[in-house]
Design a protein around this nucleic acid. Structure first.
Length: 509
DNA sequence: AAAAAAT
């Protein structure tokens, strides 16, 4: 806990943990047509009895400069109840004012046009209004930013990259590293759309499949201004001197906690950082994710501090406030593994299709295939994605799902993070996510990312966790405790009405 | 008894 705030200035202020936004209770924003506007978490239920006598001292929200502004009523970081659950820790003297409109950000007319015309955004979301001034105000400080799933983080760093690039300079100036091929592609799609009128050039840094393979030595040096890719390929390009790092102005890690986690992509990511800091010591670093557990948070802060030797800002959300209130979570106890398949066949397939698209998460590639075969055998149409498929197949299956041609997608954790499809209203955990070093412990972060595939941008959603046996129940309980979020039980797995009811209560029917 | 990236 005490680790992170070490470099920051130290005037503490608390965020009011008890949300006071009870005004719009009658008409929560449930429309699936919400565009580019933070529909926001509904007002809070009165759960936790005493757990919230927040110890301000340990939370360390430091709003040194902001506090000054506050007296002038310039910023609304603290006044706005909407922002109460994002904690800002700023360093140094730079004052920031949260952006009420995109016009407040000194963006180029081309970029504004992209936001309004192409993206159809209206106003910055919460994380956007807070983080964009931090990203775009000189001196360009590094930023470690946590925000809820589906709250618009991608826009923050894509806008950051697009506005830092000098269009006249035909060399790589912005680099974004992602954990999966799918996420890199998705981020590139956002970049192309948002940057449509800027003329800024970009390229994906992904491994080529066999058909398009070209030895790295024969490749021409990269001249695109923005590169988005996966760590292996980016490292390869840098090592082969095909990707110059001397003009880089901004470096982004999407899903940064995973990118810097032990057993994740830590080594690759650190290598990229070291190479870049060597040639572009003033390069701005942005680390974004919905999750930063205490371990990773400590490491991430340390590496940013040690390597880049610059001031950095931080935005964090308490884990108890990370579950989306718009996504209703359920658990179903089942007598055996076979009934998991039956419950999906009899309940999920029927009901799920009525309320939108569904993603079913499984633990292994093998169980993905087994479930797929079983459901196909029953005559249902499902598609499956996992990392062992060819790149071509992966792209095709994602595209079909995004185009709405398929309704139910079985996936390993390859899509657990970042995958953005507004029509996904239902997530099923066929297996609960568990830590691979301690099989009896849940992987809290993966759980949160998985359920965050539903309820994008304030939309309604539901999650069914399929439990089988004492161990599953224990893991579920640990997850509930960790996020301080009760998961409702569907008591009879054979009762149609209970499932229908659950979806109704989730606001989906 | 592990996902993913990539060699």
């Amino acid at each position: 806990m005490s680790d992170t705030a070490s470099t920051a200035a130290t005037a503490t202020a608390t965020a009011t943990a008890t949300a006071s936004s009870t005004t719009t209770e009658a008409s929560p924003i449930t429309k699936t047509t919400v565009v580019g506007r933070w529909a926001d978490e509904p007002d809070d239920v009165v759960e936790e009895p005493e757990a919230t006598s927040t110890s301000s001292a340990t939370d360390g929200i430091v709003l040194d400069s902001l506090a000054i502004d506050e007296s002038k009523k310039v910023n609304n970081f603290l006044d706005d109840p909407e922002d109460a659950n994002i904690q800002a820790v700023t360093s140094g003297e730079t004052p920031y004012t949260s952006a009420v409109r995109f016009e407040d950000l000194n963006l180029s007319p081309e970029l504004l046009k992209g936001l309004y015309v192409e993206m159809k955004f209206e106003r910055p979301s919460k994380i956007q209004s807070i983080s964009l001034p931090m990203i775009l105000t000189p001196p360009f400080k590094n930023l470690i930013a946590q925000a809820h799933n589906g709250s618009g983080k991608t826009t923050c760093f894509v806008l950051g990259m697009l506005s830092r690039v000098d269009p006249k300079l035909g060399v790589p100036q912005a680099l974004c590293i992602c954990p999966t091929r799918e996420l890199a592609i998705q981020n590139m799609e956002v970049l192309l759309k948002m940057g449509k009128f800027t003329g800024i050039t970009s390229e994906l840094g992904l491994p080529a499949d066999k058909a398009n393979y070209m030895p790295i030595s024969k490749r021409a040096p990269i001249t695109a201004q923005v590169i988005i890719g996966t760590p292996g390929t980016i490292n390869k390009w840098i090592a082969a001197k095909k990707l110059g790092t001397s003009q880089l102005k901004i470096l982004v890690f999407d899903e940064a906690d995973h990118m810097l986690a032990e057993g994740g992509f830590k080594e690759d990511s650190v290598r990229i950082m070291k190479e870049i800091v060597r040639w572009s010591p003033k390069c701005q670093v942005l680390l974004f994710s919905a999750t930063f557990n205490e371990n990773v948070k400590a490491f991430v802060s340390k590496i940013v501090k040690d390597l880049f030797k610059q001031e950095y800002n931080q935005l964090f959300v308490k884990k108890e406030e990370l579950s989306l209130d718009s996504v209703k979570q359920y658990k179903v106890n089942l007598p055996d593994e076979l009934s998991k398949i039956l419950v999906i066949k009899d309940k999920i397939m029927e009901l799920g299709q009525k309320v939108g698209q569904t993603i079913i998460f499984v633990k292994t590639r093998k169980s993905a295939g087994m479930l797929h075969d079983a459901l196909s055998g029953y005559g249902y149409e499902v598609t499956t994605i996992q990392g062992a498929l060819t790149q071509e197949d992966r792209d095709k299956i994602v595209k079909e799902f995004k185009d709405g041609l398929t309704q139910v997608l079985i996936s390993t954790d390859v899509l657990a993070r970042g995958f953005d499809q507004a029509q996904v209203n239902l997530v099923v955990n066929y297996d609960l996510p568990i830590r691979h070093d301690h099989q009896s412990e849940p992987d809290h972060e993966v759980y949160l990312h998985r359920i965050g595939r539903a309820g994008r941008f304030g939309r309604k959603g539901a999650v069914f966790n399929l439990l089988c046996g004492e161990r599953d129940n224990m893991i579920m309980e640990k997850i509930e405790r960790h996020f301080n979020h009760y998961v409702t039980e569907v008591t009879s797995w054979t009762d149609d009405e209970q499932f229908e009811d659950a979806l109704k209560k989730a606001g989906l029917m």
